Simulated assay, not measured.
Amino acid sequence: MAGLTRRSTITLALGGALAAFVAAGAIAEDAELVIFDWAGYEDPSFFPKYVEKNGDTPTFTFFGDEDEAFEKVRSGFKADLGHPCSQSVVKWREAGLLQPLDTARIAGWNDLDPNITGMKDLVTSDDGKVWFMPWEWGNSLLTYNTEKVPAEDLKSLKILADPKYKDRVSVPDNVDDAYALASLAIGLKDWTQMTDDQFKQASDFLREVHKNVRLYWTDNTEIVQAMGGGEVDLAWAWNDAAAQLQLQSVPVQATRDTAEGVSTWVCGYVLYKDAPGSLDKAYDYLSAINTPEVANFLLSDWGYGHSNAKAMATIDPKVVAEKGYADVDKFVDKTLFQSPLPTDLKLKMIAEFEKIKAGY
Results as ranks from 00 to 15, higher is better:
G303A: 11
V224C: 05
V270D: 02
A295S: 15
V319D: 04
M312W: 08
A259D: 07
Y325K: 08
P292T: 06
V252S: 05
Y325G: 14
W238E: 13
A259R: 07
A326D: 15
Q225C: 00
A311V: 10
T255H: 02
V319T: 14
A235L: 07
T258F: 02
H306A: 13
A241R: 01
D219T: 15
P292H: 04
L279A: 14
Q225L: 08
A241S: 10
V332E: 11
G303H: 08
S278M: 04
D240A: 12
A235T: 04
N239M: 13
V252C: 02
Y269H: 09
A242N: 00
T291A: 05
A259Y: 04
G229E: 11
Q248V: 00
A321C: 05
D257Q: 09
T291C: 08
K323S: 09
D240Q: 13
Y304N: 12
L279P: 01
K330V: 15
Y272W: 02
G268K: 01
W302M: 15
A288Y: 04
D280A: 12
K330A: 15
W236A: 09
K330L: 14
A235G: 08
K318E: 14
D301A: 10
A243N: 01
H306P: 03
T291N: 04
M227G: 04
Q246N: 09
K310E: 10
P276N: 09
V328D: 05
I223M: 08
W238H: 14
V319N: 08
N296F: 11
E293G: 15
V270L: 05
V328S: 08
G261N: 03
G229Y: 06
K318A: 15
K310Y: 10
A241I: 06
G261K: 04
V252K: 06
Q225T: 14
P292V: 08
G303I: 11
D240G: 11
G261T: 02
S287K: 08
D280G: 03
W265M: 14
E322D: 15
V319P: 10
K323F: 03
G324F: 15
A237H: 12
L245W: 01
Q253T: 02
E293N: 12
Y285N: 07
L299S: 07
V262W: 03
V328M: 12
K281H: 07
Q244I: 01
D327T: 03
W238R: 15
T258D: 02
I315K: 00
W236N: 10
D327N: 13
T258I: 01
V319Q: 11
V332D: 09
D284C: 10
V320T: 14
L279K: 13
I223H: 02
D257M: 04
A326M: 09
L234P: 03
W302A: 13
A243W: 02
V328G: 00
G277L: 08
L299Y: 05
G230Q: 06
E260K: 02
D233K: 04
Q246M: 04
A282T: 06
V262Y: 01
L247N: 12
D257C: 00
S307K: 02
Q253G: 00
